[in-house]
Amino acid sequence: MFSPRGPSLRELAVQALSSVERGYDLLAPKFDFTPFRTPDSILAATAGALSGLGPFGAGLDVCCGTGAGLSVLEPLCDRMTGVDFSAGMLAQARAARPGATLVRADARALPFTEGFDLAVSFGALGHFLPAERPALFDGVWRALRPGGLFALALGAPPPVISLAHWATVGFDLVMRVRNAVWRPPFVMYYRVSPRPAVTADLRAAGFTVEHRPGLLLARKLAHSEGS
C-alpha cells in the first residue's frame, strides 16, 4: 500500500496519536507516497466533468493538502487558491504549485466572501463530524459568487460483501476507540458522510445539487439567500 518513500509504521503511529493538524504537519513530506492521497483517476474524472461547465475565473481548493486538487483547477481557472489548516501540507503545496495562492485557515470558518467561481474538495469530508458539515458548507457558499459551483468528490460506498466495506468499518471502529481513550482527538472517518446526508446539508446551505458518478455538483443560486 505504501511506497518505499512513504512513512514508516512508527511515523504513522506518532501521526495517529497526534491532533489532526499536528498529524498532517508530521505526515506532509511523505503524504503523496501514501494511499491517502486522492488518486489521479478521481482528479482526472473531476477535471473531465468540469471541463465543459466553465469558464471559471477564480478557483478554490478546500482542504487542499499537498495541492493535488489544484491540478484540477489549474487548466480551468485564471487564478487558484488553496486553503488548509496544516502548515506542513501547505508547504508541500507551495513547492508543487508555486502559482497558487495558499491560505492557512480552518475550513469550518473560511475567510472568503464571494471571491470564487468554482470550489473543489477531495477526500476531506471524513475530517468533519456530521454536526460540523453545515459550517463547512456555509463557508463554501459564502466564498462563491452567485452562480458559483462547488464540486465535491464523493464516491459510492463499497458493497457490503466487499473487503473494502469491512476495511472501512474496521478503520472507523478503531478510530472511535482511539478517540474515546486518547486526547487530542484525530477526526478521520470513512463512514460519516453518506451521500443523502451530504446532499441534504448542501441544500440547506443554499445549493442546488446534481449527482454525477463519484461527484456532487452543488451550485449557488444567483438569488439564494444562503443560510
Rank of each mutant, 00 (worst) to 15 (best):
A180C: 11
D84M: 03
T46C: 15
F112V: 01
A28K: 09
G226H: 08
T199S: 12
L149E: 03
A218P: 02
G139N: 09
G170I: 05
G139Y: 10
D117R: 00
Q15I: 12
V169M: 11
E74R: 15
A156I: 02
L152F: 05
F112R: 05
V20E: 15
F137G: 07
A218H: 04
A119K: 04
V72T: 02
C77G: 07
P159L: 08
R178H: 07
G82H: 09
L53E: 00
V192D: 12
E74M: 04
D78P: 01
G54W: 00
A44V: 10
A28F: 04
D61G: 01
P213W: 13
T168I: 10
F137S: 06
Y189L: 12
T208V: 12
D78V: 03
R212Y: 07
G82S: 08
Q15F: 14
A44M: 08
L43V: 14
L43A: 11
L90S: 06
K30E: 09
T46Q: 06
D84Q: 02
D138M: 09
G88I: 12
G67K: 06
W182C: 12
R195Q: 14
A95V: 13
V103A: 03
A200Y: 07
V177M: 11
A107D: 01
M175Q: 14
P184G: 01
G23D: 09
R22C: 01
P146A: 04
S162K: 03
R97K: 13
A28V: 07
L216M: 07
P194G: 07
Q92I: 09
A205N: 05
S121R: 00
T66Q: 07
R97Y: 09
G99N: 00
P55L: 00
L217R: 08
V160M: 11
R133A: 08
D40H: 13
G139M: 11
A109F: 07
V181Y: 10
D106H: 01
L70I: 04
H127R: 09
F56K: 00
H165F: 15
R195H: 05
V192L: 14
A124T: 12
Y24S: 06
R22H: 14
F85H: 13
V198N: 01
A13C: 08
A124Y: 03
G54C: 00
R142F: 05
I42N: 13
T168N: 09
P213A: 13
L215S: 05
L73G: 00
E11Q: 13
D25C: 02
A93P: 06
S3D: 13
R94F: 04
H165W: 14
A204F: 03
N179A: 09
Q15H: 11
S71E: 14
F33D: 15
V198Y: 03
R79I: 01
G147Y: 08
Y190V: 04
M89T: 07
D25I: 01
A47V: 03
R203G: 08
S3E: 13
A44E: 15
V169T: 13
V192C: 09
G69H: 02
M80W: 10
A105F: 05
L90C: 08
L144H: 08
G52C: 01
L17A: 13
P134M: 03
D138T: 14
I42G: 05
H211W: 10
R104T: 13
V140L: 04
A143H: 00
G155P: 00
V20W: 05
F171R: 05
T101V: 15
L70R: 02
G206P: 06
A91H: 10
E11K: 01
P4R: 06
K220H: 00
F31D: 07
G6K: 13
Y190P: 02
P29H: 01
